[in-house]
């Protein structure tokens, strides 16, 4: 019997094996169910909330059709991250993860595969939601560059969250429990933010919390990037938050990654 010539080291392996794993992760998402979810969910949320609150906020002088889609984008970024966390847990439960560990597969390729597939998923989601939002009156008023910034910020946010959910998923190994566990902080964070309701509509004592929640900061930056006059201060704040989340969650994920079997 012949031993394989190469080992797992090297950039070539990292990229090639990462691409194979990313392709495999994406094939898991390429189901009818997922396609329906990707189209139906944005429609449900954009038009559902618009019907629900459009009139109430119009009365307060807020263009809800422009206000809402960035929130749906942020919400969907959470969904991308949570789904990814559950997928990592499933890979650990099924033994796929362990099989990769005993194969000459570059350790970084496993992480790269996740990052790449989630980036693609997040990108598609942002595009779909922006198009859906367009039907509801949402527009990029700030030009092409700001629109690109909108997409980039959203995807970066999804990836930072994914690092966190990957840490949870890999350390648990129970996809159902992970999905439930991640749902709670997601709901609380998205509802206690400026996603659906502006900060001043919350009770006064809660307003500072709402305004400074990282989720609000990111959503407000997304809104700013879609507006006629993007505020770079707001965008910078969001970039800092995303960077902090990415570092904290990234460290946690790599620690779990080194221990999980």
């Amino acid at each position: 019997m012949t031993a394989a010539a190469g080992t797992e080291a090297g950039l070539g392996n990292l990229v090639a094996q990462g691409a194979v794993l990313a392709g495999r992760n994406l094939r898991h998402r390429a189901t009818v169910e997922m396609a329906v979810m990707f189209v139906v969910f944005p429609l449900i949320f954009v038009f559902g909330f618009l019907l629900l609150f459009g009139r109430l906020f119009d009365a307060r002088g807020l263009d809800y059709g422009q206000f809402l889609p960035p929130a749906i984008v942020a919400q969907w970024m959470f969904t991308v991250a949570n789904t990814s966390g559950a997928a990592s847990a499933a890979d650990r439960a099924s033994g796929m993860y362990r099989r990769c560990l005993v194969m000459p597969v570059n350790r970084g390729a496993i992480a790269l595969g996740r990052i790449a597939s989630e980036a693609v998923g997040a990108f598609v989601a942002v595009v779909v939601i922006s198009l859906t939002g367009h039907l509801a009156g949402f527009r990029f008023h700030g030009g092409v560059l700001a629109a690109c910034g909108f997409v980039a910020l959203a995807v970066a946010f999804a990836l930072a969250l994914t690092a966190g959910t990957t840490a949870v998923g890999l350390s648990s190994g129970d996809p159902a429990a992970v999905a439930t566990l991640l749902n709670l902080p997601y709901l609380a964070l998205i509802m206690l933010s400026t996603a659906f309701v502006p900060a001043d509509a919350f009770p006064g004592w809660l307003e500072p919390v709402i305004r400074n929640s990282p989720v609000s900061v990111v959503i407000d930056a997304l809104r700013s990037l879609a507006s006629a006059s993007p505020s770079w201060v707001e965008v910078r704040g969001a970039v800092v938050w995303v960077a902090v989340l990415a570092v904290v969650f990234g460290v946690a994920a790599s620690r779990v990654f080194r221990r999980a079997r």
Partner: peptide, 19 residues
Amino acid sequence: EQVRARIAVTGQFAALDEV
């Protein structure tokens, strides 16, 4: 790395992609 390039492993539970 040298070891992983020389071994085949079949675990107690079939480690396959179900999908």
